[in-house]
């Protein structure tokens, strides 16, 4: 009768995600100057990593699946890097 129960890893991931949400909203009201944007994007990246690793089961995957999953990030990196380089370096 225990086969319907969610694994502890899923419950843990869900609770950590909600805690990180509370943390990021709280920190948004703390004056950190340019640090606010860095904190918000860092916590967002951690949350996305948890969703990808645990909900999307990437921590149980290897090789080819990780390459396919990473391809999107790779192209996104090129898009943002080349797209922003001009604007960020203009004087």
């Amino acid at each position: 009768m225990t086969q319907w129960r969610p694994p502890l890893s899923l419950i843990g991931a869900w609770l950590v995600l909600l805690a990180l949400l509370a943390l990021t909203v709280t920190l948004a009201y703390v004056p950190l100057g340019a640090g606010n944007a860095i904190v918000a994007m860092s916590i967002g990246t951690i949350k996305a990593g948890i969703v990808a690793a645990i909900f999307m089961e990437l921590r149980h995957r290897s090789g080819l699946t990780l390459v396919f999953a990473g391809a999107g990030l790779f192209w996104l990196g090129i898009l943002l890097w080349l797209g922003l380089m001009d604007f960020l370096t203009r004087t």
Binding site: A71, L73, W75, L76, L79, L80, G83, L88
Partner: peptide, 28 residues
């Protein structure tokens, strides 16, 4: 599963374009 990840990569770039535009104007 691999097919879904290819599809998701195209979606990453769809939203990535929007976010790039946002970052350019936020920087300005």
């Amino acid at each position: 599963e691999l097919g879904m990840w290819v599809f998701i990569a195209t979606e990453v770039l769809l939203f990535g374009g929007l976010i790039l535009a946002y970052l350019v104007y936020r920087h300005a």
